[in-house]
Design a binder for these strands. Structure first.
Lengths: 113, 113
DNA sequence: GATATAGTTAGCCTTATGGCTAAGCATGAT
DNA sequence: ATCATGCTTAGCCATAAGGCTAACTATATC
């Protein structure tokens, strides 16, 4: 049941920050060097670098240095584990929906007493 | 571009913790009182309570107190924004895959000059 | 070779996170 | 009324997260 799943924790944590999601969104339109990614954030370079490290650590992006420029690119398949987890959860949660209705109804009745 | 999306940040952050994912998995099999959720974690009650607060704050669970027992239940539709975001990203990322080829080719040509 | 450019590293600061204990409060059982 | 149970609150502690500045390295460019 995926007790230890550092991958998922890293992925979700990486996605939990708006700046990092913005960077991903920008990268979705194509690879970009670090300073181009930093510009729209209003943040300093070292700060952006750390966001990029988090993204790279989670496997969401890759980067390569060409001369003095580091170009970053998205890793599309990185989201697969997230999607898989979501699908699993949805399967379980939905299969329980009918019984949940019963439960909520029961609760409401208890409350109404 | 989803600049301000506190919902997503809350959701992803809530999902980033293994204990919280375990609690969700447990709740997927049906509602449960706090102490039943705490037992398998090996954590103290106050600690578990805070995990539950995070989950409830993200809208992933609801809870109601019946007597001295607080019963927690999953909110299946809470994952919809996550799923939507994932779908959007996948759409963009994948639609870019063909153009990525072009980009790489262009880069190679630039380099060759 | 000097200078600007693009990252990088180191270190500091503040707040948030995740764990705990100890004490409190409300409710169910005796 | 007393006591046990189940949760709650308050507060402490250590570490991680997210921001910064300042100083350094490495590559273009003139």
């Amino acid at each position: 049941m995926a007790k230890h799943d550092p991958d998922l924790s890293l992925l979700f944590h990486a996605l939990a920050d708006p700046t990092r999601r913005a960077i991903l969104a920008r990268l979705a339109t194509g690879p970009a060097p670090v300073s181009e990614l930093a510009a729209p954030t209003g943040l300093r370079l070292p700060t952006v670098m750390r966001h990029l490290s988090v993204l790279e650590g989670a496997g969401l992006i890759v980067s390569a240095k060409d001369g003095r420029v580091r170009s970053c690119a998205i890793v599309p398949e990185a989201l697969v584990p997230v999607r898989t987890w979501l699908d699993e959860q949805r399967a379980i949660w939905e299969s329980r929906l009918d019984r949940l209705d019963d439960y909520v109804t029961k609760l409401a009745k208890e409350r109404a007493k």
